[in-house]
């Protein structure tokens, strides 16, 4: 279960202090915030854009906003939530208008069912199970390329919730707060993203498992 890493009250007040000091020009406080958040901001920015140069610009933009707007932070949510929210917005805005031809309509990657509720499709693909392959093998070489291509094909707002939930290990409630959506909408989007990713992987890796 995700453990709600951004909601501890002690951490929140400590971080609010860091944020207000950083906004007032305290270099040490800014360094403290960078130490806690730059890697997370980068992971989220890269996860949404899938581009290192874009992710770097986003990290710079986000930390600039923290300094320039941090004094106005009202503390209605945890500092961590606010930083993730700013990052998500900046990253999604940056992606807006960029080429989307690699993205796949998700409906093409979701399971389909017969009238009786059983899955339909070629039996060999339905029972293909590549899950016993070791992570080390799947995270390197050709399999890693297949995985990266599958992630690239997800729409960016699906990638955003996947990163927040599965990589940053936030709760559904925290993710919903960050992306400004309901918990049920976040759960649906996550499920569709994971199903699509599983399908894309199975089409490529499943052939080898059979």
């Amino acid at each position: 279960m995700p453990h709600g890493v951004i909601d501890s009250p002690a951490m929140t007040s400590d971080e609010q202090l860091l944020l207000s000091r950083a906004a007032a020009g305290d270099a040490g406080a800014l360094e403290g915030l960078m130490g806690r958040y730059s890697a997370r901001v980068y992971r989220l920015a890269y996860g949404i854009t899938r581009n290192q140069a874009d992710a770097e610009e986003i990290v710079q933009d986000v930390f600039l906003q923290l300094v320039l707007k941090g004094a106005g932070f009202e503390g209605r949510s945890a500092v961590g939530s606010w930083i993730y929210r700013v990052t998500t917005n900046v990253a999604l805005n940056k992606r807006r208008g960029k080429r989307r031809e690699v993205e796949t309509p998700l409906d093409d990657c979701l399971p389909t069912f017969k009238a009786d509720g059983h899955r339909e499709g070629p039996r060999a693909l339905l029972v293909a199970d590549w899950s016993q392959r070791p992570d080390a093998e799947l995270l390197s070489g050709e399999a890693r390329q297949i995985l990266d291509e599958a992630i690239d094909r997800l729409p960016e707002h699906y990638r955003a919730v996947l990163i927040l939930r599965d990589v940053e290990e936030l709760s559904n409630e925290e993710v919903a707060d960050i992306v400004g959506d309901s918990v049920s909408a976040v759960k649906t989007r996550l499920h569709r993203a994971r199903m699509a990713l599983r399908e894309l992987l199975t089409r490529r890796l499943g052939a080898e498992a059979r």
């Binding site: 890697a39 980068y42 899955r119 039996r123 293909a128």
Partner: peptide
């Protein structure tokens, strides 16, 4: 089919999480 679906879905969740744990380069 559902056993295979569950196993590959679970694996997809963990693989996606591991693939997303990218490091911010020091020079950045």
């Amino acid at each position: 089919a559902c056993r295979a679906y569950l196993a590959t879905y679970r694996k997809t969740r963990s693989l996606g999480a591991r693939a997303g744990r990218v490091e911010m380069p020091d020079e950045m």
